[in-house]
Design a protein around this nucleic acid. Structure first.
Length: 471
RNA sequence: GGUCCCAUCGUCUAGUGGUUAGGACGCUGGCCUCUCACGCCGGUAACAUGGGUUCGAAUCCCAUUGGGAUCACCA
C-alpha cells in the first residue's frame, strides 16, 4: 500500500428540519463508507441556516440515528449558523475581486423581471440590472455572483458522467441576503473548501446546483472537488420518498425491530452493487465499497427485501450481540430482561424464526411470563382431558430427570410415545400450549431446555389443573 | 414549459459487442418436519419503442415514449 498523497475527505451535511430519513441515511452511508474504505476522513456538518425550519430536536434526532446506524464522524458536527463570519469574509473577497456585486433590486422588481422573461418565452432569471452599477452596500442590498454569459460549465460527475450546462442558463444568483446571511450555495462551497472536502457524494437533486457551485469555486480559484450524484430513493409508487409513504425515518425502522447492520446492508444495495452479492457484514462493506459501482437510476424502497435481509442478519449474529437490542424491544412489552445466559438461550431458539426484533420479542415473551395465558382456541383444541395422563407422566419424569439435557428430554417423550402409542405430533401441541399458551413456538426440547426444569414442570402442572378445573 | 438526469423480471440488481440474459426479494410447486419458521430442490417473470452503427447488439449513436429532479433573499 502506497501512502495516500491526498486523503479522501467526505462529508454529510443534513439540514435539521426533520428526522434522518432513508435517503439521507443512504448518502451519509456512501460518504462514510468511502471515507472509511480509503482511510480518509468523514465530516459532519449541520446546515441550519434556515432559521424558520431548523430545530435542535432535529439535530438530536439526526445524530441519534447516525449513531444507531454506526455511522461515526471524524470531525464536527459543525453548524453553519456559527460560521457566518467565514462566509462574509469570502463574500468580501468575491466583491473585491469583481466576481460579485451589490444589488439593490427588491424582490418585487426581480419578480417583475421573471414575469417579463417568461412572457417573452425565456427562462425566468434576474436580468443583471445592478451588475455594472458598482453599488455600495446598502440597507437592503444583496450580493450576487457575476456569472459568465457565455460558455459552458461541465460537471464531471463520477456516477452520471459529464454533463454540460450552458452558462447563459445561470443567472447572477444571490450569495448573500439583504440581512447579511449567506445563501445555501455559497455556504456549502465555502464550507467544503475550508473543511478540505474533496469528494462530494450527494443526491442527484443537487446536480443542477453543481454548476453554480463550480462557478464559486472558480471565482475563488479553489480546487474543484470530485462530484458524485446518486439517484433518489423513491417510495413504492415511484414518487420521491415522502411522508405519505409511511415509515421513512431511520428512527421508525429502529422501532420496527430492524438491526442497524441490516439497515446498512439494505441501504447500500439500493444503488450500489458488488456482483451478485446481497448479504454484507459491516466490515465487508468497508472493504468492498467503491464509487465505480454506484447505479445511475432511481430505486424504490422495498420493505420486504429489508425484512429478508434483517432476518439473515439476525441469524448470523450471536445471541450475545442480539441481547441488548432484544431487551430494548422486550421493555416495550413491559418485560424486564437481563443480558444473561437465559436471555441468550431464549434468543438462540428464536433466531431462525424472527424477521425482526419486534417479532423476536413477541415470540420471547412467554419465556418471561410465568403465569401463562392460554390462547382460547389453542386451549380448547389441545388442553383436553384425553391428554391429562400424558401431561402427568411428563411432569413426573421431568421432575426426576438428571441430568436435564436435550437428549434426556427426548428420551422421556420417546418412552411416553411407546407407552401410549401416540405420535410425537399428538403430544407436542398440547405440551406447547401448556408451556407457551399458543400453538406456535420454538422446538419443544430446545424450549424446555432453556426454560429449565422448574418452570417447565410448574407450567405443565398448571395446564393439568386447568384441564381438571374445566372438566 | 425551460434545463438536467434516468430506463434489464412486480421490486433491488449483475451484465460494459457474441450469455440458454445471472442473482436476490416477492409470488409459487415440492422436500424436510413436534407447531411456526429456518434450510434445500424446482417454477414464474425483464432488456420501454423505433431507427441506425456492426458480421453480430441489453451493451454504442439518434429519436420517441415514460419516469424523476430543478427552476427562491429554502436547503
Amino acid at each position: 500500500m502506497e501512502p495516500p498523497i491526498k486523503p479522501i475527505v467526505t462529508r454529510f451535511p443534513p439540514s435539521p428540519t426533520g428526522y434522518l430519513h432513508i435517503g439521507g441515511a443512504r448518502t451519509a452511508l456512501f460518504n462514510w463508507l468511502y471515507a472509511r474504505k480509503t482511510k480518509g476522513r468523514f465530516v459532519l456538518r449541520i446546515e441550519d441556516t434556515d432559521a424558520a425550519r431548523s430545530t435542535s430536536e432535529s439535530v438530536d434526532a439526526i445524530l441519534e440515528s447516525l449513531e444507531w446506524l454506526g455511522i461515526d464522524w471524524d470531525e464536527g458536527p459543525y453548524f453553519q449558523t456559527q460560521r457566518y463570519h467565514i462566509y462574509n469574509e469570502y463574500i468580501e473577497k468575491l466583491i473585491e475581486s469583481g466576481h460579485a456585486y451589490y444589488c439593490s433590486c427588491t424582490p418585487e422588481e426581480v419578480d417583475a423581471m421573471r414575469e417579463e422573461a417568461k412572457a417573452k418565452g425565456q427562462k425566468p432569471m434576474y436580468n443583471g440590472k445592478c451588475r455594472y452599477l458598482n453599488l455600495k452596500k446598502g440597507d437592503n442590498t444583496v450580493v450576487r455572483l457575476k456569472t459568465p454569459d457565455t460558455g459552458v460549465t461541465i460537471v464531471e460527475d463520477i456516477v452520471k458522467g459529464n454533463t454540460a450546462f450552458q452558462n447563459s442558463e445561470i443567472d447572477d444568483f444571490i450569495v448573500q441576503r439583504s440581512d447579511g446571511s449567506a445563501m445555501y450555495n455559497l455556504a456549502v462551497v465555502i464550507d467544503d473548501i475550508t473543511m478540505g472536502i474533496n469528494t462530494i457524494i450527494r443526491g442527484d437533486d443537487h446536480l443542477i446546483n453543481t454548476p453554480k457551485q463550480m462557478l464559486i469555486y472558480s471565482a475563488l480559484s479553489a480546487n474543484m472537488p470530485v462530484f458524485g450524484h446518486v439517484p433518489m430513493v423513491l417510495g413504492s409508487d415511484k414518487a420521491r420518498l415522502s411522508k405519505r409513504h409511511g415509515a421513512m425515518s431511520v428512527g421508525e425502522y429502529q422501532k420496527m425491530g430492524f438491526l442497524p447492520d441490516a439497515m446498512i446492508n439494505y441501504l447500500v444495495r439500493l444503488g450500489w452493487s458488488h456482483g451478485d452479492q446481497e448479504f454484507f457484514e459491516r466490515a465487508e462493506l468497508i472493504e468492498k465499497f467503491d464509487l465505480e459501482h454506484l447505479g445511475r437510476s432511481a430505486s424504490m424502497f422495498d420493505t420486504d427485501k429489508l425484512m429478508a435481509l434483517n432476518s439473515k442478519h439476525i441469524q448470523k449474529k450471536s445471541p450475545g450481540e442480539l441481547a441488548d437490542p432484544l431487551i430494548y424491544h422486550l421493555k416495550e412489552l413491559g418485560i424486564d430482561a437481563q443480558n444473561d445466559t437465559f436471555t441468550q438461550g431464549v434468543i438462540q431458539t428464536l433466531q431462525p424464526r424472527s424477521k425482526t426484533l419486534v417479532e423476536m420479542a413477541d415470540g420471547a415473551a412467554f419465556y418471561y411470563k410465568d403465569d401463562v395465558e392460554y390462547d382460547k382456541t389453542a386451549a380448547d383444541k389441545f388442553l383436553t382431558p384425553d391428554i391429562l395422563s400424558v401431561l402427568k407422566k411428563s411432569v413426573e419424569r421431568i421432575e426426576t430427570l438428571e441430568p436435564y439435557t436435550h437428549e434426556a428430554l427426548e428420551n422421556v417423550f420417546k418412552l411416553i410415545m411407546e407407552e401410549t402409542g401416540l405420535k410425537f405430533g399428538k403430544l407436542a401441541q398440547p405440551l406447547r400450549v401448556a408451556i407457551t399458551g399458543t400453538t406456535v413456538s420454538p422446538g419443544i426440547f430446545e424450549m424446555l431446555l432453556v426454560l429449565g426444569k422448574e418452570k417447565t414442570t410448574s407450567r405443565i402442572k398448571k395446564a393439568i389443573r386447568f384441564i381438571q378445573d374445566k372438566a
